[in-house]
Design a protein around this nucleic acid. Structure first.
Lengths: 135, 135
DNA sequence: ATTATTCCTACTTGTACAGTAGGAATGATA
DNA sequence: TATCATTCCTACTGTACAAGTAGGAATAAT
């Protein structure tokens, strides 16, 4: 369960947008989420290209979610920032059965992260067990 | 679910030792598991220092498991080669609930890998669903 | 003695992550 | 039309860690 700074920042930014009811400046996101200013730009750009957020330029511009928070899963965000995981080297015959185990782990992880949305995370802020209840 | 080459090699080596009934040379492990020769040495040394395998020097020396394959979990091996995972950076308040989710993922992963032993992996070689049955 | 092996430290190299630089494009406001 | 604040874009740099290598010392069998 490797989690890059980029991904963590991206999730923070998405959550910041999810709680806002109007466009938010990159500057504001950078400050509240404690993301280096230019790196924040960088990440927001990537999220926009992936279609997760939208933007408006110029003064009074900013960023907002492309879909409601309940329709954006954590996995959607992570897929963007982590990119394609590089294929691991082929298994030796003796280690071949490990492939099935890795698959199980990956699919469980994927299932959980696909199930939990930004809305779930926000709702869990202070309550018990996030993402356990249906949405 | 990041898996380094080192870890994959280590698991291959452990499985190779698990199926052998006598000490095995590093050379032989390197060849059968397709591990660069000196890197193989390197990894075996680490496994020995961690107490997972034992060794004997000189001609007719080699390596063997310190415990029976049914008593060595995949997690035991992985813990050695991956070392302590470095702490991730602190969460912003908005992203704080993610910590609980990461925890759930980590503990599930850990549970599964602690449950499956080398013996399980070997037994699953060709059969269905590895690690599903009790040991 | 010789030889085959493990053992040990330290080094080199490659790659991916984290973050930065410089400036162009856009849009609101006056 | 000028100004200014913002997003947008490519490319670059520094650093840390992973992957793998080098050279040789210690040990044990013959």
């Amino acid at each position: 369960m490797r989690i890059s700074a980029r991904t963590q920042y991206a999730l923070g930014a998405m959550l910041a947008l999810a709680v806002a009811d109007r466009p938010v400046h990159a500057e504001r996101i950078a400050v509240t989420q404690d993301i280096p200013r230019r790196f924040c730009d960088n990440i927001l750009l990537q999220l926009r290209r992936a279609g997760l957020i939208r933007s408006q330029r110029g003064p009074d511009g900013g960023y907002w979610l492309a879909r409601p928070p309940g329709e954006i899963a954590l996995a959607d965000v992570i897929r963007v920032t982590e990119g394609a995981e590089q294929a691991l080297r082929p298994f030796s015959p003796a280690a071949a059965p490990l492939a099935a185990i890795w698959d199980r782990l990956r699919s469980h992880e994927n299932a959980l992260l696909s199930e939990i949305t930004l809305a779930d995370v926000i709702a869990s802020n202070g309550h018990a067990h996030p993402g356990r209840e249906a949405r």
